[in-house]
Simulated assay, not measured.
Amino acid sequence: MKPLHADICRYEMDFTAPVTVRGVLLARRQGLLLRLKSEGVTAYGEVAPLIGLHTESLDEALQALATFIPELSRLDWNASDGRQRLLDEAALPPSVTTGIEMALINLEATERSSLPSFTDEFPPASKIPVNALLAGDPQAVLNRAAKRYAEGFRAFKLKVRKGELDGAVACIRALHEAFGDKAELRLDANQSLEFDEAVAFGKALPPGCVAYIEEPLTDAALISDFHAATGLPSALDESLWQRPELLDEIGPDPLGALVLKPNCIGGIAKSLDLAAKAHRMGLQAVYSSAFESSVSLGLYALMAAVSSPAPAASGLDTASFLARDLTATPFATPDGFADPAAAWRDSLRVRPDMIETVKSWSL
């Protein structure tokens, strides 16, 4: 069926503690939900550009979404081919495309009373591992890592910041001494390091202590040279949407993973295509959230579950940084794993007290 009614809703959620995104300190997460209704069925999609990461602001996303919604009346049937054509023609900001596509996928699946289905998917894993996000001063990092390890997490992600590399090396050495090869450690430099300082940093690390480092360089075109100098694999994240041609230019040898943020890449289908490419290249496909709510995390978990025969640990621990969430049952990883089918079903049940309707349409 096709959507018959649409609403745009706003939300605001506090973080448990301020979060730094590319030098911007954020106390709360703000975003939009697109609510679609057909006969007796309601579904949501999240439009959530993140300050410091996305080029579109929340107000720009709202304007783009409001301008597009009347186009939904052109859908004869809510199926993958039709909605993809509609979205491709619209040339929307990536966070907006993702939210619209999410809402339409969720609406289709809810109408069928089934899980969403995707093209060329693997049989869905019953559980997917999640990496624990580490943040704060070195002692806070070690304390959080110990707590998350005891809970069952076996993959950690640590941010590495320019100007704080000596402390990062000490922290990584401490994590390596504490966990050795019992847990996977991933780093993320957010394109912050010049080539020479990145190489010096890589050479200062204990051999084999790091699975990969996301976007180590200000110029990602030098990742092959970085790998040759340090032996340390990199992962592409921002480059996947900023300079998508680099993936083929760099090739798989210097890489360990592709980090997939759907609301930056520009949608669900595009992210699944990149996950399939990662599998063909022998790389991990690591789904990652830009501090979105459990509305998004449920679908991302399901995408991870069908993107590989052995899903990599996903970067969906961001829900633990939210003081309150939008869903009645927030995304959970009680033992370091998530149940993707349950997480998706929980993502459909949005708390009305957490959202405010700002615009409505009959389609």
Rank of each mutant, 00 (worst) to 15 (best):
A235V: 11
G23N: 11
R29N: 07
S95Q: 13
G167L: 08
L25E: 05
C264W: 03
G180R: 07
L258G: 10
S271V: 06
E197G: 07
W361L: 06
V130I: 14
N263G: 03
A91Y: 11
D237H: 04
A290Q: 03
L62D: 02
A43M: 04
H5P: 01
C9L: 10
L185A: 02
Q242G: 11
L107G: 03
T329V: 09
I223G: 00
R345W: 10
E215M: 12
A178Q: 10
G251I: 02
D237W: 08
I223P: 00
G136K: 04
L187G: 04
A178T: 02
A304H: 15
A228K: 12
E111N: 14
Y300F: 14
S224I: 11
A103M: 04
K37D: 12
P3C: 13
T67W: 14
P3I: 10
L33N: 05
P94A: 12
M303E: 10
K359T: 13
I69R: 05
K359S: 07
T218I: 05
R85L: 09
A43E: 07
L86H: 05
F153E: 01
H54K: 02
L92T: 01
L34R: 00
V199R: 00
R161F: 15
L255Q: 07
R161K: 12
S347D: 11
L246S: 12
R349A: 03
D88G: 06
Y11K: 02
F195A: 09
A228R: 06
C264L: 14
A305D: 13
A135P: 13
S117D: 15
G52T: 13
D339K: 04
P252L: 05
Q139L: 10
A64L: 13
P311Y: 09
A140M: 09
A178S: 15
T42R: 12
L134I: 00
A66D: 13
S95E: 04
T318D: 00
L26T: 13
R243M: 02
L193S: 01
E60L: 04
F179E: 00
F15K: 15
Y287H: 08
P129D: 09
R161T: 14
R28A: 08
L193K: 01
N106Y: 03
L297H: 04
F68D: 07
V199Q: 03
E177R: 06
V47S: 04
P49W: 05
T329K: 05
H5T: 15
D59Y: 03
D76T: 09
P262T: 10
P311R: 01
A276M: 05
P207V: 08
L115M: 14
R22W: 05
L65Y: 04
P124E: 04
F179A: 02
R345H: 15
S320F: 00
T98N: 15
K359E: 14
L217S: 11
V24N: 06
H54Q: 07
A328M: 12
E12T: 06
D181G: 07
A178F: 00
G40Q: 06
L222D: 01
D7E: 15
G266T: 05
L4R: 10
G231S: 11
A140T: 13
S114A: 15
L236Y: 06
P252N: 08
S192M: 08
P49H: 06
Y11R: 00
E71L: 14
H227R: 10
